[in-house]
Write a protein that binds this DNA or RNA. Structure first.
Length: 595
RNA sequence: GCCGAAAUAGCUCAGUCGGUAGAGCACUUCACUCGUAAUGAAGGGGUCGAGGGUUCGAGUCCCUUUUUCGGCUCCA
């Protein structure tokens, strides 16, 4: 497959190559625009790039455009493919480009052209296929006939240039391939991913629920609560090992505190407030001011530092409607927070320690993650020097440990720069989980101090950090990552005991009671149903182990064991004694933290 | 918040032109006493998200509203 660059250079490459694939999708995006202009001549084009999975194109339609209108566009695009139009590139002057777009009413394109020449872009190119031409830097594939399979997947709104104050355009998403088989494969993969959706699994497995009575406020059901508690338990052990002390601060504090911390000025829109005895209170959106107050309750010496105060803090934030997403984005969540108070000299070691801790946890769950460094935002407080020092502190910690990261300009918290850890969900969307934020502001605003070796009062530096991020979001990610098949140590229910018939009910119950006594999370299915039916039910719940207790097992004082994950192709492990099974289980679910 | 779509039994969904609200699974009862992914029969279960309107009559048409879904923006 040949790719045409804007210089006119032609390169041969395969569809599997990133550059070729993107050129392929980009050309398909142009075909979409071409089809739109054929069917809706009054529509105006925005931009239409290739993305990681396919492409999109933004349009302003004269009348409402809905998903029902997609098939007609798809048909027109197939027609354009069949026409096998050659794709060519030509250099144009700004004047010609503006005139061409002006004649066609393309005001968005004109805006782009003006902006490109204002930013000193000396070369403008048009790509042309048949009657359709547009401003584009390429590259593209060389013929529309190469696109043999395509699908327009969804319609969504998107602000022009991504800015909330701009007009909202209609964005059409799609994907294309050089053959039908690959398109089918892609669509099947999407179906698979839907099966892992934590919202679906959360319902099916009885983990959590969100109801109309509390939008964005999740309910944890018994099984989900077990999972949450296991994660908390693991977290506590780790933090004990790492020298953290755990605290708990109030969920609601007086307005003055939030004024001192700066939240009232910088975060007010997201805070819930209430009035008690005619005084205004805010429900905490973050735990830091509470942690700050704990630090200040007694005087500190440099010898005590670093002080690491951990808190599983329940925070509430008013996320705008339309932004919630299962457990991933909620209005009330538990942060596995900690605030570290330290001297300037301790910064590298402490940041390094947190980086290692986060890596240990993510590795434990088998996650791959990427790291971003977010720098000073427009709405922020503090001096330039402090921001510079703080940002430099994070950079050198990352570089000392050889962590690869990308920079996210202007995306830091209002009080300091941050390192973010992003994890992927089942369809490849990424979610920020862990974060490490360095803060010079808050200790200063609160007048926090410690006594140095020379007897002088100094202001400590503070780290805010979370590992899971939010336990809710982390559970969402975990559920999708494991597709609901939680490893034994995390599984809310580890074993289900099945009686074979009414004759084996008593024995099955005995087995169940013994497992419970051994501390194994188990359930008993003594319903009067066939074995196949009960196995199916247990399999659908994705339980790690199924035990069958029938008359034969009772005679031999054994149980028949069936496991969820086939080992060497076997799910049926045959019969064994209960003590043997229990010790096998205990070995498999061994303590998650090496202390 | 914005653009688009959706909401019917516990769950997944059907419901034609506006004319007495349905299926499968789940649940309860009965029969069967069963060996590794669904035994059979019977029964209970609905203010069709909420509020208003049009109509002799609304799950169905119109308006408002809430929630959810796909995105945008924002964020853990």
């Amino acid at each position: 497959m040949k790719v045409l660059k804007s210089s006119g250079e032609v390169r041969e490459g395969s569809f599997e190559e990133q550059e070729v694939k993107r050129a392929f999708w980009h050309t398909t995006a142009h075909m979409l625009a071409q089809a739109v202009k054929r069917l809706y001549p009054e529509a105006r084009c925005g931009i239409g790039p290739a993305v990681d999975e396919g492409f999109y194109y933004d349009f302003e339609f004269p009348a409402a455009f809905t998903e029902q209108d997609l098939p007609a566009l798809e048909a027109e695009m197939y027609k354009i493919a069949k026409e096998a139009l050659p794709v060519t590139v030509e250099e144009v002057t700004e004047k010609d480009a503006l005139r061409y777009m002006g004649e066609r009413g393309e005001c968005y394109k004109q805006e782009l052209i003006r902006e490109l020449s204002d930013t000193g872009k000396d070369r403008l190119t048009f790509y042309r296929q048949g009657e359709y031409a547009e401003l584009c830097a390429g590259p593209h594939v060389m013929n529309t006939g190469l696109i043999r399979a395509l699908k327009l997947t969804s319609v969504a709104g998107a602000y022009w240039r991504g800015k909330e104050e701009n007009r909202m355009l209609t964005r059409i998403y799609g994907i294309s391939f050089p053959d039908a088989a690959r398109l089918d494969g892609y669509l099947t993969m999407l179906e698979e991913a839907k099966r892992r959706d934590h919202r679906r699994l959360g319902k099916e497995l009885g983990l959590f629920a969100i109801r109309e009575e509390g939008p964005g406020f999740p309910f944890f059901l018994p099984r989900g609560m077990v999972l949450k508690n296991i994660l908390i338990d693991y977290w506590r052990r780790l933090h004990e090992r790492e020298g953290y002390q755990e605290i708990s601060t109030p969920i609601m504090l007086h307005r003055e505190l939030w004024e001192t911390s700066g939240h009232w000025d910088h975060y007010r829109e997201n805070m819930y407030t209430t009035v008690i005895d005619e005084r205004e209170f805010a429900i905490k959106p973050m735990n830091c001011p509470g942690g700050m107050l704990v630090y200040q309750m007694e005087p500190h010496s440099y010898k005590e530092l670093p002080i690491r105060l951990g808190e599983l803090g329940l925070v509430h934030r008013h996320e705008k409607s339309g932004q919630m997403h299962g457990l991933m984005r909620v209005r009330c969540f538990t942060q596995d927070d900690a605030h570290i108070f330290m001297t300037r000299e301790q910064i590298p070691a402490e940041i390094g320690g947190v980086l290692r801790l986060i890596d240990e946890v993510y590795t434990k769950f088998g996650f791959s993650y990427h790291v971003e460094l977010s720098t000073r935002p427009a709405d922020s407080m503090g001096s330039d020097e402090d921001w510079e020092t703080a940002t430099q502190g994070l950079v050198s910690a990352l570089e000392d440990l050889g962590v690869a990261y990308t920079v996210n300009e202007g995306d830091g918290a209002f009080y300091g720069p941050k390192i973010d850890f992003h994890l992927q969900d089942s369809i490849g969307r990424t979610w920020q989980c862990g974060t490490i934020q360095l803060d010079f502001q808050l200790p200063m605003r609160f007048g926090a101090e410690y006594t140095g070796a020379d007897g002088k009062k100094e202001c400590p530096i503070m780290i805010h950090r979370v590992v899971y991020g939010s336990i809710e979001r982390f559970i969402g990610i975990l559920t999708e990552h494991y597709a609901g098949k939680f490893p034994l140590w995390l599984a809310p229910v580890q074993v289900r005991v099945l009686s074979l018939s009414e004759k084996s009910e008593v024995y099955a119950r005995q087995v169940y009671e013994k497992l419970r006594q051994a501390g194994i999370r188990c359930e008993l299915d003594e319903r009067n149903e066939k074995l196949g039916y009960k196995i199916r039910a247990a399999r659908l719940m994705k339980l790690p182990y199924i035990l069958i207790a029938g008359e034969k097992e009772e005679r031999e004082q054994q149980i028949a064991v069936r496991r969820r994950d086939a080992e060497e192709g076997r799910q049926d492990l045959g019969s064994m004694s209960l003590p043997a099974f229990i010790s096998m289980l205990q070995k498999e679910a061994k303590a998650p933290v090496a202390l």
